[in-house]
C-alpha cells in the first residue's frame, strides 16, 4: 500500500484560496460519486441510443445531457480552483433543476417519458442519489469558498 506520489504535493496547495480544495475531503467523495454517475449515465444513454433510439429519443438525449453535466462536475472537482468551483456551482444548480423538473414531470405525466432516465421519479432507480448529489454538491461548494479554517 504505497502512498500516491502526488500526496506530498498536496501540502503547498493548502496555502491557496479555499477553492483549491474542492476536490479534497468530502469533495473527494463527491468526485468519486460524480465519476460513477458519469459512467452510469453516459453508458446508459449510449446503449439506449445505439439499440433503440426511436423508442424514446427525449429520454435518451436527456440521459446523455445528464451524463455530460456529471462529467463536467467531475472534471471541475478534479481540477479545483475558483473558476472550476464556479463551473461546478452552475452545473450542480442545473442538475438540481433538471432532476426536480424531470422528477415532477414523470410523476405528473408519465406518458411523456416512455423509458426511464437517471432523473425519472427524482432518481428513485438510483437510490435518490441524483437528487441528493446536487444538494450535497452545492452545500460543499459554498462551504469550500470560505477561507480555510486554521
Amino acid at each position: 500500500m504505497s502512498e500516491p506520489a502526488h500526496e506530498a504535493s498536496g501540502a503547498p496547495a493548502a496555502n491557496e484560496a479555499g477553492a483549491g480544495r474542492i476536490g479534497r475531503g468530502p469533495g473527494r467523495l463527491l468526485l468519486s460519486l460524480y465519476g460513477v454517475f458519469t459512467v452510469a449515465a453516459v453508458s446508459r444513454s449510449l446503449v439506449q441510443m445505439i439499440t433503440k433510439f426511436h423508442d424514446a429519443p427525449l429520454a435518451y438525449v436527456l440521459s446523455a445531457v445528464a451524463g455530460l453535466v456529471y462529467a463536467v462536475i467531475t472534471v471541475a472537482l478534479r481540477r479545483g480552483g475558483e473558476a472550476a468551483r464556479r463551473v461546478a456551482l452552475v452545473c450542480c444548480s442545473a442538475e438540481l433543476a433538471g432532476v426536480l423538473a424531470v422528477g415532477t414531470f414523470t410523476l405528473v405525466d408519465p406518458s411523456a417519458f416512455p423509458d426511464a432516465t437517471v432523473w425519472s421519479d427524482f432518481g428513485i432507480g438510483y437510490l435518490f442519489l441524483p437528487l441528493l448529489l446536487p444538494v450535497a454538491g452545492l452545500l460543499w461548494l459554498r462551504r469550500s469558498a470560505r477561507p480555510q479554517q486554521p
Binding site: 479534497r24 475531503g25 473527494r28 467523495l29 468519486s32
Partner: peptide
C-alpha cells in the same frame, strides 16, 4: 488511497 482521511473510508463505503 488518494484521500487518506475519513472521507477515503466513506468513498469505499459508497463503493
Amino acid at each position: 488511497l488518494t484521500e487518506r482521511t475519513r472521507w477515503g473510508s466513506a468513498i469505499v463505503a459508497a463503493g
